[in-house]
Design a protein around this nucleic acid. Sequence first.
DNA 1: CCACCTCCATTACAGATGTAATGTAACAGT
DNA 2: ACTGTTACATTACATCTGTAATGGAGGTGG
Lengths: 190, 190
Amino acid sequence: MRERWVPDARRNAVADAVGRLLMRGHGTFPGMREIAAEAGVTTGTLQHHFGTKDDLLLFALEHHCRRCADRLTARSEEGARSPRQALAVIVTELLPLDEERAAETSVAKAFVSRAATDPGFAAHYRAQRKILLDLLGEQFARADVPDPSAAATILARVIEGMRTDCLLLGPDAVDVDAVLDRLLRPRDTP
Amino acid sequence: MRERWVPDARRNAVADAVGRLLMRGHGTFPGMREIAAEAGVTTGTLQHHFGTKDDLLLFALEHHCRRCADRLTARSEEGARSPRQALAVIVTELLPLDEERAAETSVAKAFVSRAATDPGFAAHYRAQRKILLDLLGEQFARADVPDPSAAATILARVIEGMRTDCLLLGPDAVDVDAVLDRLLRPRDTP
DNA sequence: CCACCTCCATTACAGATGTAATGTAACAGT
DNA sequence: ACTGTTACATTACATCTGTAATGGAGGTGG
C-alpha cells in the first residue's frame, strides 16, 4: 500500500526540501523536479498539493517563518529574568547556527529580491518584520531604553546584517554579546 | 558602418542593463536574451565580450560595486567637517534612493544568496565588506567612539538592513539621522 | 457492488535556457 | 593586396522549464 500522509505533513516536508536546496544550491530557486527529488516525491505530488510553483514557494517561505516563530515562543520564558537575556535569545534564534536555522536564513535571503516586486511576498515581509519589531521593542521597553521602538528598528537591521555575516563568513564572524553590549549600555541623559 | 565601441564601455553598458533588469524583474537573474535585449545588443555580443553567463554576472557585480565606490570617494571631501557628516554621506550613498542606487542595491541583494556557496562571489563580498568597515571605522575613530571597529561592524549591518527596508518599504522607512543619533551619542564612561 | 473522491505517477508539450558553431563585416599591420 | 584579428549577428541545438492531461490505485459513503 502506498504511504499515507496527512496532507499538511507532506507539504511541510516539501517546504523543508526547498529550504535544504536553497541552503546548498546556488541561491537561485530550485526547479520542480529538483524539489520533488529532494522531497522524495514526483512532480505530480507537488502539482496536487500546491497548484503552481509560486504557491509552493510562498508556502515554503511561510513554513520556515512559522518554524522560527514557534521556536521563539517556545524559548520565550527564558527571557523572564532580564530583558537582555530575552534579546539574546531572540537574536541567537535568528542566526544560522545549525542546519535548520541556516535553511531558514537562506530562504529569507532568497525571497528578499522576490519581495521587491511581488506584492504577495512583500506583504509577508512586512508582517514578519512587524512581529519581530514588537518582540524586540517590548524588551527594550523593559530595559528602560529611551525610544524602544527606534531601538528595535535598529536591532532588527543589525540582525539582518548578522544573518548574512554568519551565513557568508561563518559563525565566528558574529558576537551577540558584543552587539547587545553596545545597544544596551546606558547613555547620558541631558 | 557598425557602431564602434571601446570594449570596456560596452561591458559597462551590459552591466547596467543587468542592474536595471534585477531592479525591475522578480529578483531572479535575467536570461541572456533578456540582458541582450535590454542592452540593445545580441547574445553573440555577450558571448564575445564575456565568455559565459557567470562571467557576465560577476562582472556586473563588480561594476556596480565600483560605481558605488567611485561615488563614495567623489563625495569623501564632504565629510571633512565632522565625522558625523562623513558617516551620513556614506550611509546615504549606499541607500537605494534613486534608480542608480536602487539597481546597485538590487544587484547586491541578488548576489548574497549566490555568494553563500560560490567562492568567487563570496570573496567579492568579503573584500567589499572590508572596504566599508575601514571607511566607517575611520570615522568612528575620528568621533572618539570607543572600539571604533566594533562600531563600524554594527553600522555596516544596520546599513544592510536599511537597504532592504528602503527597497521593500520605500524611502520613508529609513531615517539616517535617527540611526546616527543613536550610534554616536556619547556614553557613560566608567 | 458502485460511484466518487483524494492522492499520486507518468507522459506530453510548448516554450525558455545557455552556449557552441558558423558566417561576416570592418579595420590593422605588413 | 594579403592576412589576421576584433567585433559582432545568426542559426542551431541539446537540455531544462513549469504545467496541462491522463490514468490509476485505494479508501469511503451509499
